[in-house]
Design a binder for these strands. Structure first.
Lengths: 152, 152
DNA sequence: GACCGTATACTCGGATAAAATATGTCCGAGTCTGGAAGG
DNA sequence: CCTTCCAGACTCGGACATATTTTATCCGAGTATACGGTC
């Protein structure tokens, strides 16, 4: 039961997190983030709520309110975002369909899949929002400032 | 749109491929494989058909018919099986929701996710059915023969 | 006794439903802003 | 002119529909087998 395809919400959440990192201390409403990316506003709030429950973003209500990053960008890994939105369930959980009663050893298939899943998570955990920011600045130094100007 | 959860069919397909490797040249009907694992027989055939289209297993109709592995076990990687059942679509395909018109550079998020996906696939591609067979024999040398006896 | 034709039963294969999950939408609770009245 | 109060509008948050994927099932097409008849 390993999955090879992520939900759309993960992509949106990653883009929004990067946007919020660029916005700095200025709260950005979900509606503005949605308009910026051409996404359904009402559904995007669902992903942002998940990020809020995970302690990645913080929301402030009322006028001039919105979302902002609750942690320094270099402390937020891609794995954190993925786990917050798509759930932290193990990618592959062998349901033990092997015949012959209970087994004392771990299923070889489960072990192999767990190894692959671990490699995937390790890559995601090794990369933070600050790294993404650096990558973008390297390719287009003006992009962060331009995005910040549009959002705030 | 990265996914963290695979479909059930992948697990079934992997177990069945290992079973077929142990069965050798004797065709095994889908119904027997399903009964051995306590699975819905009609649905398991769907996964086996996918394996057949990928050239991993071969089916022989009529009495004494069934499925058998169409390739030596050491040439069938776990990635082959996963791709056959769950599709070979990329795990994460950035839909380019970045604002500001078409971009000349690749999305940094897409790059990072592709890197993680590649690590996952590399692990799966590095492990074959023969490796799994060796793992099982190391833990329980009698298991392959016992399974073969039950299936043939 | 050996060969051939035929009926049979068993196999897969794709087309067809039901369930679960992901996607998308709505309206209510809470809160900060801004202005107006009063001191 | 400064302080306080109040009304308003904007924000999020969770509960409610729709669409898509996954899971599950069925019945028909095709084929190797096994038997019976024939030479």
């Amino acid at each position: 039961m390993v999955v090879v395809k992520m939900t759309e919400g993960v992509e949106w959440a990653l883009h929004c997190c990067l946007d919020l990192a660029w916005a700095g201390d200025t709260p950005v409403p979900a509606a503005r983030l949605a308009a910026h990316h051409g996404l359904p506003p009402a559904y995007l709030t669902k992903q942002l709520q998940a990020l809020g429950r995970a302690g990645i973003v913080r929301s402030t209500p009322g006028p001039r309110g919105g979302y902002l990053l609750d942690r320094p960008p270099h402390t937020v890994t891609l794995m954190d975002v993925v786990a917050a939105v798509d759930g932290a369930d193990p990618a592959f959980r062998c349901t033990e369909i092997r015949a012959g009663g209970p087994h004392t050893t771990r299923c070889a298939i489960d072990t192999a899949m767990a190894r692959a899943d671990l490699a995937w998570r390790r890559e995601l955990a090794a990369r933070t929002l600050a790294d993404l920011d650096a990558d973008v600045r390297r390719a287009d130094p003006d992009a962060p400032a331009a995005t910040r100007a549009r959002l705030t």
